[in-house]
Design a protein around this nucleic acid. Structure first.
Lengths: 161, 161
DNA sequence: CCAACATACATGATGAGTCATGCATTCTCC
DNA sequence: GGAGAATGCATGACTCATCATGTATGTTGG
């Protein structure tokens, strides 16, 4: 039962480099955002989604689809952002179970203030370091991985198949 | 002052794909490890470091260098792992301030039990999806990014220069 | 020798993510 | 039309990560 195919030297090297990159890059981007504008990366993503739609408001389940977050994570996170005045909630007339998450003026200000610095950081720490060709290839790889990630979601729900 | 160079369509697409990949991949790997062996990815990394050295013990600052974690994160994390019996602490005779973090038998068992499944998941969800060539290119990109990340660490410590 | 500073590490408070669970409301189907 | 299931969302408990700060030991210059 121990036919484990361990990683060879090249694989290890690449995997470790990738892991370090993503962990360090996230840390740096998060810190930049946090200290320059008081937003977390998560806050930023939420606000991006809300500014993406003209009405500036979304149903939680719609936001969840876009962010691909767990439902309870979203719920908690929105609660905190609401306490900070970045978003608000409105009832949904069409479905009494549902609600809307709305961008507040303060939320809009916050992301508009944060965006230039964040984009600049992404550019400086990541995009500018790679050639356009490399970036395109990376994008391709990411999509490959994502696709195969989507195929067998929990990988154990097919027992009854 | 608003000469922000926003991302063009290709850049956005690649950046978003990369972000989604890393976030989703981490989530999947973390869940696999957690549910199959009760370890978090962080636990796993710590145990890897400890098993990497023959003596099975490291000074905290040494572990910190390897993991590139914040010092307080390491301290808290080791505390929790200690409570779970995965590691222990020993005093350091040469430096009374210092200590050693030692791998316990339970810790060794835990990682030995976890490793095959984790490696298999990394392979299935990531390595197997890419060609060897893609993997090598990705590793190269990661190292480029890491290197440029190291160059200007806090990016503001040079004000007195 | 001792004051000032650095190093090694711990701790408390707080924001964040996950799991399990709860609870309305809506849907389905006999 | 009413029971049972599904949907939309919230909440509490717990684990984590980070920040600020504390404490003890070591080091160095006068």
């Amino acid at each position: 039962m121990d036919g484990t195919r361990w990683l060879d030297a090249e694989e290890q090297r690449a995997w470790r480099a990738y892991q370090q990159m993503q962990s360090r890059l996230n840390a740096r981007l998060g810190r930049q955002l946090q200290s320059d504008s008081g937003l977390s990366l998560a806050d930023y993503e939420v606000l991006v989604c809300l500014t993406d739609v003209a009405e500036g408001r979304l149903r939680p389940y719609e936001l969840q689809r876009r962010l691909e977050w767990e439902q309870s994570r979203l719920s908690h996170h929105i609660g905190r952002m609401q306490r900070r005045g970045l978003v608000g909630r409105e009832g949904c007339p069409e479905d009494a179970r549902g609600s809307f998450i709305v961008l507040t003026p303060a939320g809009r200000e916050a992301i508009e203030a944060a965006a230039p610095g964040h984009v600049e950081a992404v550019r400086r720490l990541f995009l500018d370091v790679l050639t356009r060709e490399q970036l395109m290839m990376l994008g391709g790889m990411a999509r490959q991985v994502l696709q195969s990630l989507q195929a067998p979601p929990p990988a154990a729900a097919r027992n009854a198949g």
